[in-house]
């Protein structure tokens, strides 16, 4: 294990008593923010629940337009990226800077793969005109079919936006890791972005069965 002297030393902000208080505050802040995120998504899930309750057959028919293979692969990508993320944090805790960077880059790659697949899925929907109501030109079995795709694009789109933001954050982490800023005494940003990234994973864990696996 390399000694921590070669890392960039972290200055505790003036209004905190010590690094422990600073870290705890950041963590609680992040959790509070995630709680906010959870309720941000909640209304969409409520809308989903209502319309699936009202039009179960329509949902069953509609989900055949989605490819569970692509959704499934995307699930695996996100889970793997969550794993590499958690390993990146752990490597920082044990002062293994090189491994931190490698894990972060892997996370970045899986996140981008997720978006690539999402891109193919979306373009296929565009091709068939299976879009939100105002743009919908597809052929539907049920008159309420546009609602399914309205919800699909609203929910996966918002989730995709979170992935995009996550990619930006991970890039920022890689940049800072290369400057050797994260080590056993200071890895707060890693931990925070990690929490955020797992939350993005968490949302997808529910989106996947709800849209792709309607039995």
């Amino acid at each position: 294990m390399s000694s921590s002297t070669e890392f960039v030393k972290h200055e505790v902000a003036h209004h905190f008593v010590d690094a422990e208080q600073e870290f705890d505050s950041a963590k609680l802040g992040m959790w509070t923010f995630l709680v906010q995120e959870l309720l941000f998504f909640s209304a969409l899930f409520v809308a989903y629940a209502i319309f699936r309750f009202l039009y179960p057959e329509m949902f069953f028919e509609a989900h055949k337009h989605l490819s569970w293979v692509m959704g499934g692969i995307n699930t695996l990508f996100l889970i793997t990226s969550s794993f590499t993320m958690v390993m990146a944090v752990r490597c920082a805790q044990t002062n293994q800077n090189r491994l931190t960077i490698i894990n972060l880059i892997l996370t970045l790659i899986f996140a981008c793969m997720f978006l690539v697949i999402k891109y193919f899925e979306y373009s296929e929907k565009f091709h068939h005109g299976l879009l939100p109501p105002a743009l919908f030109t597809g052929e539907g079995v049920a008159p309420q079919l546009p609602i399914f795709f309205g919800l699909y694009f609203a929910m996966t789109g918002l989730h995709g936006l979170h992935v995009l933001i996550g990619i930006g954050l991970i890039l920022w982490l890689i940049f800072r890791s290369v400057r050797r800023e994260f080590h056993a005494d200071y890895y707060t940003p890693l931990e925070m972005v990690g929490l955020y990234w797992h939350f993005v994973d968490l949302v997808w864990i529910f989106l996947f069965p709800l849209f792709y696996l309607i039995g």
């Binding site: 039009y55 109501p133 105002a134 743009l135 609602i147 694009f153």
Partner: peptide
């Protein structure tokens, strides 16, 4: 959702679509 509804549509507030 309201912004989406007025631009591209989501349909969940639109009685015509159910």
């Amino acid at each position: 959702l309201l912004i989406l509804e007025t631009t591209v549509g989501v349909g969940i507030f639109d009685p015509v679509l159910g």
